[in-house]
């Protein structure tokens, strides 16, 4: 346990220092997450929100929350992994007595920490451009929301671990990840609140892992009435399904990697 703590502290510390070096890139990545804000613009101009029973305030809270959720659940594991494998950096990592996945996880957390000031800055700009849209969530909402963001991030990370392991077999694994991004984009609630979906589509969406990645944490943050137990339960259930899969695939992939003598 003490070793785990030491490893975690060392990893997070070094990765955070590394990410600070990349702050210019990270600022731009943060800026490229403006989609929910653009969608807020479109939705607030249409009557569709009202038709679904959402007040303008609910709408703006939802999309701003979705913006924050999206910022802190970005996963780019597959891209660094591909790069590392290509550049031959993977083999030395595999020699260490610690799975490289922990290192990647630490660098994701560090990247999120580096993002914080940029996200705050963007929210301030939004607040200045449209006074009154910002609000301060209650302490409970904030705490539950932050926990939900963390859970959503872990679920997304796990899902991408599975796709990433396919890199061991195929050069086109990144393309598969891009395909997975499509249902994520449209079913997660990033571009439209799930409340506005037709009931059948909504049921379908809720049967996938995607709404729990954005819609659920965003609504917690926005202070909407949400069944928190159900949401966390769903995320935990999906993780329980994906975890053994990820574990098996990763081990099989490593076996294949070492068999190829790379």
């Amino acid at each position: 346990m003490r070793r785990a703590w030491r490893v975690a502290r060392a990893l997070l510390g070094s990765q955070y220092a590394l990410m600070l070096e990349y702050r210019a890139e990270i600022a731009l990545w943060a800026l490229s997450g403006v989609l929910p804000l653009i969608m807020l613009g479109v939705w607030s101009g249409s009557g569709a929100g009202a038709a679904a029973g959402l007040t303008p305030q609910q709408l703006s809270h939802y999309f701003l929350a979705a913006f924050v959720v999206r910022q802190f659940t970005v996963v780019w594991l597959i891209h660094v992994f591909e790069e590392d494998a290509l550049q031959g950096r993977l083999s030395p990592l595999l020699l260490q007595p610690l799975s490289p996945l922990w290192r990647y996880l630490a660098s994701h957390f560090s990247e999120q920490a580096t993002r914080v000031p940029f996200v705050v800055l963007m929210l301030v700009v939004v607040g200045l451009a449209a006074p009154g849209v910002l609000w301060w969530p209650s302490a409970g909402a904030l705490l539950l929301g932050a926990l939900a963001i963390l859970a959503a991030f872990l679920l997304r990370f796990l899902l991408q671990v599975i796709v990433t392991t396919l890199c061991f077999w195929s050069e086109r694994a990144a393309a598969l990840d891009r395909l997975l991004l499509i249902p994520y984009l449209f079913l997660s609630g990033l571009v439209a609140p799930l409340d506005t979906f037709p009931p059948a589509v909504r049921r379908l969406a809720l049967a996938t892992p995607f709404p729990w990645m954005v819609d659920f944490p965003a609504r917690l943050l926005a202070g909407e009435p949400v069944n928190a137990a159900l949401g966390f339960g769903a995320i935990a259930a999906w993780c329980l399904v994906l975890l053994p899969m990820a574990h098996l695939l990763w081990r099989a992939g490593l076996r294949r990697y070492s068999a190829m003598g790379a």
Binding site: S46, A48, A51, A52, F186, A192, V201
Partner: peptide, 16 residues
């Protein structure tokens, strides 16, 4: 996906 979202946006009325 885009058509689906566009349809959602048109749920509130005949125009956007």
């Amino acid at each position: 996906g885009s058509l689906f979202v566009l349809q959602l946006l048109f749920a509130g009325g005949p125009s956007l």
